[in-house]
Simulated scan of single mutants.
Amino acid sequence: MRIAQPAHRWFAGLLLSAASALALAQAAKPHVVVLATGGTIAGAGASTLNSVTYVAAKVPVEKLLAGLPELASVARLTGEQVFQTASESFNNEHLLTLARRVSALTKQADVDGIVITHGTDTLEETAYFLNLVVHSAKPIVVVGSMRPGTALSADGALNLYNAVSVAASQDAAGKGVLVTMNDEIQSGRDVAKSINIKTEAFKSQWGPLGMVVEGRNYWFRAPVKRHTVHSEFDIDAIETLPAVDIVYGYGNMNTTGIEAYGKAGVKALIHAGTGNGSVAAQAVDALKALRAQGVQIVRSSRVPDGFVLRNAEQPDDKYDWVVAHDLRPQKARILAMVALTKARDSKELQRIFWEY
């Protein structure tokens, strides 16, 4: 004789089965770790009309993720607050600490992708640094926003959703460190902040790698410069970064800055020149003198697009200088710092600038 189960037991069993199915479904999703560092994406303004005037780095990562419940349908998320800072103050120690944490996470079998929330002022520099020193094919995505989450038409929520979506995607693996802003998927090497008051602020002269639309990736090109798993540099072998600074070139420039950086003990000086990395006549001897002291001189350009040609404008072979290729001054500084942890002469440094 069959005894009917009480209704409450049947209902409890149904709930338990549903909860188990939900837990299994969530566990099957890719595990993405969100490392928060502050910036506008974690900022807040006094009113919804404050899209430019606000305080950056206020919202903690758990609140940032809780405000976007749609992420649960994309990935299983873990959030970590690595820093809470505005990115204009992101220094070398921040870079090293963040890269070491990213590297450690990529070695965990249960981590499928990583997202770094970051202020936009130096986002491109951090993305390029990670692109050079983290040895992993797992998707690593850096994301920010141009407006705080409190503003009308805030862009951070969709940018973050897209970043998690890309980091959770198998087709994003092996493409180097990526930046997702304004629906575009950009190479961390190529992208640069090109305007400070529009949401489409991040551009590359070579174009985006692809787009992410409603959680789906559309790819159009792939990076060809060395990065991540193909890099000869490894954050696990880098203890400190050498001093590298930038001097800005202009027609009436004097040599005060060049000489001051030499006295400060820089290991390399990036010259942000006009046009094709041109150097004002009155600055040439000061740079030559600095090179004679052992400081590496790297000619870059303050022009947003294009690239610097070797032995054009200046006799680089004769002066033993290096050209930055298509890297803007701020990224040339990042590569020079990383390169000088291994490179010992200008020829080796120039090879690295060609390859990375």
Rank of each mutant, 00 (worst) to 15 (best):
E313A: 06
A44L: 08
E200G: 15
A21Q: 11
H118A: 06
A272W: 00
P208Q: 01
A173C: 00
A99V: 04
P60S: 10
G215S: 03
F90D: 00
T199S: 07
D285C: 01
W321R: 04
F307E: 14
A339E: 00
T180K: 08
V82C: 12
I334H: 01
T78D: 11
S17F: 05
V52S: 08
A201S: 07
D190R: 03
W10L: 14
S145W: 02
L309R: 12
T180L: 06
V295N: 04
F233V: 03
A172K: 03
V143G: 02
V55M: 12
E80N: 11
A151T: 02
T126G: 06
A163T: 02
F11R: 15
K63G: 08
T40Q: 05
I297T: 09
I41H: 01
L15V: 11
P60W: 08
S194Q: 13
D326T: 09
E232C: 11
Q282L: 13
A75T: 05
T240L: 05
T341D: 09
A28K: 14
R351E: 14
R2H: 13
L24H: 13
G251P: 05
E80Q: 10
G144P: 00
A57E: 01
N91T: 09
G215C: 07
Q170M: 09
M181F: 07
L65P: 06
V338G: 00
A57N: 04
L152S: 12
D121L: 05
D317V: 12
L269Y: 04
Q282W: 12
